[in-house]
Design a protein around this nucleic acid. Sequence first.
DNA 1: CCACTTTGGCAACAGTGTTGCCAAAGTGCA
DNA 2: TGCACTTTGGCAACACTGTTGCCAAAGTGG
Lengths: 383, 383
Amino acid sequence: MSGAAGPGANLTALRSHNAALVLRLLRDAGEGGVSRPELAGRTGLTPQAVSKITARLRAEGLLAEAGQRASTGGKPPTALRLVPDARHAIGLQLDRDEVTAVLVDLAGTSVAARSAPFDFGAPAENALAAATAEVRALLADAAASGVVGGGTAAGGVAAAGGVVAGGGLLGVGVAAPGPLDHGSGVLHRVTGFPQWDGFPLRDALAERLALPVVLDKDTNAAALGLVTAGTAESAAYLHLGTGLGAGLVLGGAVYRGARTDAGEFGHQVIQLDGPPCDCGNNGCLEALCLAAVARGDRKDAARLLGVGATNLVRLLDIDRVLLGGRMVLADPGPYVRGVAAMIAEDSDRASRPPVSVDVVERGERAVVEGAARLVLAPLFALG
Amino acid sequence: MSGAAGPGANLTALRSHNAALVLRLLRDAGEGGVSRPELAGRTGLTPQAVSKITARLRAEGLLAEAGQRASTGGKPPTALRLVPDARHAIGLQLDRDEVTAVLVDLAGTSVAARSAPFDFGAPAENALAAATAEVRALLADAAASGVVGGGTAAGGVAAAGGVVAGGGLLGVGVAAPGPLDHGSGVLHRVTGFPQWDGFPLRDALAERLALPVVLDKDTNAAALGLVTAGTAESAAYLHLGTGLGAGLVLGGAVYRGARTDAGEFGHQVIQLDGPPCDCGNNGCLEALCLAAVARGDRKDAARLLGVGATNLVRLLDIDRVLLGGRMVLADPGPYVRGVAAMIAEDSDRASRPPVSVDVVERGERAVVEGAARLVLAPLFALG
DNA sequence: CCACTTTGGCAACAGTGTTGCCAAAGTGCA
DNA sequence: TGCACTTTGGCAACACTGTTGCCAAAGTGG
């Protein structure tokens, strides 16, 4: 069962690693750019190595000069910045009643978007056809407006069977309700939708679209959006919608667990002998929290969510908590305040540094845009 | 606050990485050894690269041939095995009333051990002197019996100021009750022992012993013992002693959290408005569990521990749960059975693969020997 | 105006894993 | 018994990495 024991590294892997490191720093620096000496300092590489790496990246069109910085006593440094248009990725979100697709650039900025009604309960083939059509329509929109096609012809990923003129399309990241297997791209038994159990969604989509496809849980996709710098920080995305789940960023990477099934935040028991939950246990956080929402008591729902979040913070030493999902986005105030207050109270008592609590950025779009980042992540050595 | 963004990799790092990979496979293979072709297959490196790497390691004395394997239709492969005696490490456990020290070889096998009464509440300087004396005595024992000193003179780490004749001593791993900062090696406010708050234990010991020192929480040290192969498996070590804590192995590495403070398993709330806990919250698992132990109801204690463990398994997709700590080791049966039953029941309902639940191997020694592994871990790219 | 610092490229270098080639040492079939 | 075949593992040449040494360009500051 032990199989391969972690990848052996060769020179190619080394180059990719360092290139990804540099790209990540450039992406996080944004429009302002970063100078070569700064890149050298942040990566620990020699200035000369950075020069070589950036020269290669510039040849691939991923990188451009962004003017001169002020001198600090010598020759003024040249700022380098990411060329966002050099590559693009598609994010696809399959929700219970809606399908959403976005086209994002290297910086993760959305440049085109579409959504349509969707029936997750339809036969798999029909649903798949609808999703595929949505992606094709998005690409047609983008081609018409000339957004895609500007990238260099280099880069390896060829045009998608004539769907897009020109290169630069890296693939499709798909976010779906869990549980599912990220490694194999197969859906498991989604509550209420048994027809998907065992369906190889990733490969089916990849074949139809002739593009690389990555599949992950919606909560993990949103969590990926939280991974910013290469710091080893930990964050949690808590999603309160039809159910209650979490996406975990631990040590600077999305944590999926051995069977890529981690994040069942909603089914932690927080009340012994509490009311029964659909899962078969008693006193699950999800059951309590959704019941509070159902009876319109947002304050109590927030308190319950706060108890769960505090457990999470203490157990995993989390730095940042982001809230999302329809229930929260409909009226974020009480949830953010309630959860923040409970965590802050606990942190004070334990004399632990404060933990930030916020609504997830770009609320409704957090999951789709995160899905697109599933494709971009390898470029930046994130994930 | 972003500082350095992950290390840039150079050729030296590449070599260390691959060497560590090979050493790890050899360690896990044990006495039987592994053949070069098998190493190549498991690492993904070319056979020729493996030959070069193993030749280097053999020159350093870390590796030896271990006879021939049966042929599979051609020249019979030569098995290679780790030379456990080539290097040694010390593990030091500071407990509330006892100090324990062990000397282990590269394979993690204990070759010498000592323990003595200890007063963790004594002034820091006195306690430090006692711990130092214990390590010196252990080294004297080992030198007298000729255990240490057989290693090659090469390897960088010189003799510890005359304490040990000959080289091969890599350093000291120290396990102490949390909370503490693994990165800086400084203790925080240990409940009931305020004199340690802010004490730089790692540097103080390193200076007195003239050896590299690594400091970590006792639960993390024990968890490190669970990291075996390079698989991305996840495991949890649950420690029920004076308090209730956890050491987490996530994705094949010990998870410490941003402030190296993760694992506060005992202070998750599992009963809303339950009895108050010392930490200020109500219904903490630790308070409930210790109360059950105090009134002699091991069955209920096991049930409560099972609730917490099930929460952990669902949240983090854990494969293996190991139980330890004085309370459990005094009578493991009820705890193992109780926790196993609760997790199994939940896994069945969720049609998830079974999770193994056991007492931690080598019970009383799990923490000290894990502490020694803190020093060995970098050699095998574990941690 | 000149000494000094910082930036960033060119050329030579050390050292990695890889490829091509080949000898050694078995198995298995005619 | 003989011979073709497979597997093992080392030697030499190679492609490519980041590093070092050197130097020109372009600023600052006395």
